[in-house]
């Protein structure tokens, strides 16, 4: 069974009298250890898909099952606990807390865990070492370059050792050299066993990924993939029809 399983997920936004179908009856499985890129034009629903995957946005229909847990059957507080244990989020605009130092930012997810303060510090230092920013632990985010800030964000996402890393346009605000470094870091994490799902515009980013999922109008296309899961058949057929 895949680590992440989406079953007939549908997301409809109601804005006034309009109903926007952000995701159409989408089924998808992502295996443990996979590196998956989600691509598509803006408005295709890829960010919505990531937030549904990440337990942040309740789908209108369908189920999201992660490691056997029906995420949206959990109550709101349990779902927060689930995010803390299973997921690390990396955002396009880094989303660091400006008045906290780098190490405090990285320690943030640990604040609500039972780890002792010293232990939290040790874990944060360890992870900062991994992303190569240990020397800047006591700086404020503003003092760092974009690429460094994104590495801090990745460190924050990883400090809990979550099995899954979800990244929304992680290189969207970075130049190509820095983007490359960030992608390499994500690949390194993937090699260490983290399942990585990224949303991206940039075709450069999908060279070495295991699978690329294309979204268009909330529907799924499979272009590059080692395995086609049963749930994706409907979309594959749909694609055939289009051709």
């Amino acid at each position: 069974m895949p680590l992440i399983q989406l079953e007939n997920v549908q997301k409809i936004y109601n804005t006034g009298n309009e109903h926007v179908h952000a995701l159409h009856d989408l089924s998808l499985g992502i295996d443990q250890g996979e590196f998956v890129a989600i691509m598509g034009p803006s408005g295709s629903g890829k960010s919505t898909l990531l937030s549904v995957l990440g337990g942040l946005s309740q789908p209108t229909n369908g189920r999201v099952i992660v490691d056997g847990i029906d995420v949206y059957a959990l109550d709101v507080e349990k779902r927060a606990d689930f995010r803390r244990e299973y997921l690390g989020f990396v955002f396009q605009s880094f989303q660091l807390i400006p008045y906290l130092t780098i190490i405090e930012n990285v320690m943030l997810p640990l604040v609500v865990t039972p780890f002792a303060r010293v232990e939290r510090g040790r874990m944060a230092i360890e992870i900062l070492e991994k992303v190569g920013l240990r020397s800047k632990a006591l700086r404020l985010p503003d003092e760092l370059s974009g690429g460094e800030q994104q590495r801090v964000a990745i460190a924050r996402a990883l400090v809990n050792q979550p099995p899954i890393v979800l990244a929304d346009e992680p290189t969207g605000n970075l130049d190509s050299a820095t983007s490359e470094a960030i992608m390499q870091l994500l690949h390194k994490l993937n090699a260490e066993g983290h399942t990585v799902v990224i949303v991206t515009h940039n075709p450069e980013n999908i060279h070495d990924v295991d699978r690329c999922i294309h979204l268009r109008d909330g529907k799924l296309f499979v272009e590059k993939g080692l395995a086609v899961h049963s749930g994706e058949m409907a979309s594959a057929e749909l694609e055939k029809e289009r051709l």
């Binding site: 927060a80 606990d81 995010r83 803390r84 997921l87 989303q95 943030l108 997810p109």
Partner: peptide, 16 residues
Amino acid sequence: TREIGIFRAIGFRQVH
């Protein structure tokens, strides 16, 4: 709002 969103995303409960 944004900050609270980050807190929620990284697993802070509503009570937190």
